[in-house]
Write a protein that binds this DNA or RNA. Structure first.
Lengths: 81, 81, 81, 81
DNA sequence: ATTTTAGGAGTGCAAC
DNA sequence: GTTGCACTCCTAAAAT
């Protein structure tokens, strides 16, 4: 017979493994949310915190380069932020 | 000189073209939203309507095949939706 | 003084906590990916597995109701998947 | 009778209206993609162009404030991009 | 006012 | 290599 049987134990086990992992992932996501709430309650701006975290993942040189390029492009519009 | 000049006219034009197109896109997105509101006010379930639209993009054979595969997998869990 | 000092220790700690949690989350996401790869190598269809997992999060009654509504709507188009 | 009839003309019309609008939207999205391709072929960096477009949607004051806040936060980490 | 939900944009990965 | 797919994030809206 082709494929898999009904009552397929293998499939059930795979799905259950994924579901367990998804639960773990969700718990951590909730923890992260909590930290952001704590940060907010202490007066920090979460949007900026997210930006910080994004930048820290990159090499400093890359960040500097991106910022310079942005300024160059902004100059074409005559704006100065 | 490498790259582009400040005051770069070409860049400005490209950006402005994109911005105009984005505006058009937004108008249509708003129109779509209106139709969904109308549907809802007439008693239809928008989630199901979205599903319908998704299915109609596919070949009937593909849809049938997907549904059969799903039922096969569900059988492994002994559920019958 | 208003706001926070430069060299702000509190901010640094918050960010580091988030970064650690993000790492954990990523590890689990990778584990999930591995299980999907394993499923695929065993001949299962991951798209259908994802659908299964989605349905199992819902109450069976809800799923049945959604399916019935979808069939009702499909009937309006004279299609029968 | 409650709800809607099978062969429901009203539903079909609503869905067809949405589908037409979705087509229009897709055409514009494709046009936008084309402009980005053109920009790329002329040597521009599309990621930066997207950033420009994002910033131009905001009030200059808001942008300046965001940038200052980011620099303040970065100072807490002793980095200077 | 809070909490959930949907839609859209951007990113990265994988298949072809 | 390029196109598509899927995951994440984020904003905005909706309901409670």
């Amino acid at each position: 017979m082709e494929g898999h049987n009904s009552g397929d134990r293998e499939l059930v086990l795979l799905v259950e493994r994924i579901e367990r992992l998804e639960e773990n992932k969700k718990e951590i996501a909730d923890d992260i949310k909590d930290v952001y709430l704590e940060a907010k309650s202490k007066g920090y701006d979460n949007k900026t915190i997210r930006e910080i975290i994004k930048l820290r993942k990159l090499e400093p040189d890359v960040v500097r380069e991106q910022r310079m390029l942005l300024d160059t492009y902004l100059a074409a519009f005559g704006v100065d932020f």
